[in-house]
Amino acid sequence: MIGTGLRAFFALAIAIGFGFVGPAQAGATFDKVKQAGTLVCGVNPGLAGFGQPDNQGNYKGLDIDVCKAIAAALFGDPGKVKYVPLTAQQRFTALQSGEIDILSRNTTWTLQRDTELGLNFGPVVYYDGQGFIAPKKLNVKSAKELNGATICVQPGTTTELNLADYFRANKMTFKPLVIEKLDEVVAAYFSGRCDVYTTDRSGLASTRIARAQNPDDHVILPEVISKEPLAPVVRQGDDQWNDVVRWVVYALIEAEEVGITAKNIDEKLKSEDPGIKRMLGVTPGTGKSLGLDDKWAYNAIKAVGNYGEIFERHVGKDSPLKLDRGINALWTQGGLMYAVPIR
């Protein structure tokens, strides 16, 4: 009941929103942020690994580190971020209305959002995708064998639609067991009320680690039935601001590729590699083009580490989620993370 009300209201809010999303003045956001001295960053109220307050109330996570890196690049201080927790319904209006400067909240990049909502997406920071988890004893090797299966799914998100699309495209049938609350849908799966549970693969992995009596008794099927590229988002109309976000993320990815970490970055300042010298500002130039200090990339990497470090710390092997790098590995290791040249 609440869900449909919210959705109708959201649609209305967006419709009205169009009128207000004209092309903003060039540089408006960039200047505003520089002047304010704080980055206002829209984040998830609580999603393990991506954005979540710890016991002391400090936000931690992969999306959070993107905000910290940008603040470090702008001000030389990763602490100059104001986090605004946003629900899924609020997030785009908060960005459109100028309440936040950047949205770093596990948001999927789609055509409709990029165009109709008047937004611009930065580089993808996590490639997610919807998958299935099944008990090993079912002996299912592929999602193609799931014809007639009972499938646990949460309503209201694209997850439910992707599921229906996939089964229709493969001419299979399924019985959906639709449960609103994450806790209950997971409990339903583990108690055997459904054969398979579907959600984003990062969610499946964390559920398997944290809730399964024995994680090895469950397999995540190889099929990825949707593409969920998660990226930071800014308003359209301020290209300079968009550039800052874009290049800070690229610097984090590039740093991993050339082996710069938060720890060894000061040694790397002495490196003879012209690429590293350019990126870290030893050879000046890149900062001026972005309207930042030449130390922008140095400050960002020093604050949060390179992309690989961020990944392992929050969602990878050093975190409770224990996700594999998978397609989020560098392009040199068969993944999709590829930074365009910083020069």
């Binding site: 919210l6 109220p45 609580g46 999603l47 393990a48 690994g49 979540q52 307050p53 710890d54 605004v84 927790p85 946003l86 629900t87 319904q89 609020q90 806790d183 997971v186 964390s206 559920t207 680690i209 944290a210 809730r211 975190s319 409770p320 989620l321």
Partner: peptide, 22 residues
């Protein structure tokens, strides 16, 4: 629903901790 952490909001955020699931 508007992203303010009242008592129930902090409870929900605490529940999202991967170290303490469920």
């Amino acid at each position: 629903i508007i992203g303010l952490f009242d008592l129930l909001g902090t409870v929900n955020a605490a529940l999202a901790d991967a170290n303490w699931q469920g």
